[in-house]
Design a protein around this nucleic acid. Sequence first.
DNA 1: ATGATTGCAAAACATTTGCATTCTA
DNA 2: TAGAATGCAAATGTTTTGCAATCAT
Lengths: 146, 146
Amino acid sequence: MVSPKRELRKVGLTVTMSRIKVLDVLASAQTESRHLRAEEIYKCLMSTGDSMSVGTIYRVLAQLEMAGLVVRHNFDTGQARYELAGDDRHDHMVCMDSGEIIEFRDQQIIEQQKRIAKEQGYELVDYRLVLFVRKDIRTEKSVGGI
Amino acid sequence: MVSPKRELRKVGLTVTMSRIKVLDVLASAQTESRHLRAEEIYKCLMSTGDSMSVGTIYRVLAQLEMAGLVVRHNFDTGQARYELAGDDRHDHMVCMDSGEIIEFRDQQIIEQQKRIAKEQGYELVDYRLVLFVRKDIRTEKSVGGI
DNA sequence: ATGATTGCAAAACATTTGCATTCTA
DNA sequence: TAGAATGCAAATGTTTTGCAATCAT
């Protein structure tokens, strides 16, 4: 994210402190590959003295998501997690032991999905893919009995 | 599902009216390839005169899920949807126009995922895959700019 | 100035839980 | 009969929203 202000203008949103602050928090979290919940963004802002109401955070996130600047995830059942949308579309794997979230990109899997959709007479518009993984200890295991 | 009672005993759950009724509703919904929300199960039971508290429905669904008799999905952000667990592991695509949910099975995509996990030094334990699709009208479109 | 944005608190919503009652084995 | 399951309602946790005050252009 070059400049929050520029990004906001580019997508037709007015430049406000709230939006800039939320983008800043997400940007700094991104360098650590973190995916934040609204509550975490709120606490993060509070800790730096930037107060903002939770309601506003949700509103800002919704607007940024609609504008395509932010992506919302639902890894687990529970709270949504947010991250900056980059040029690089990627998916996630979640380590079931450590809770660590690993990002990955794989063109092949997207092609497969397009193929599957087409086989049913549909066109792929979007998808959600999350892999639940464990450190590879050379154990032969299958998924869902397959 | 051969017999709800037998299934319940098999997984070590006592046979109660609530559990049987919920399994029945899910079984009849399954023939229409429906994935029900707790609220829908509740209404379905009410409409046939079988009253059951919402709290119980959630408790029963949680138990059935832990026992492996039921699978919980989170297609959209919002309420969870439940379906009977069958022997056949399958994934879903959601039509963005009609809201229709199509089930599909594809071994190739699972192999791809195993490969991706392994490339990162992990072992695939489970995954969530949902394709968002639209009736194929021969429009060339790409996903996420890819 | 004016329309969009925000704070605040209440509302909405799905889901969970405590406790007394009822049911299963 | 004992222990598990249920109804009911209150509690929870996340997210949304109405309205008056404030801000961006």
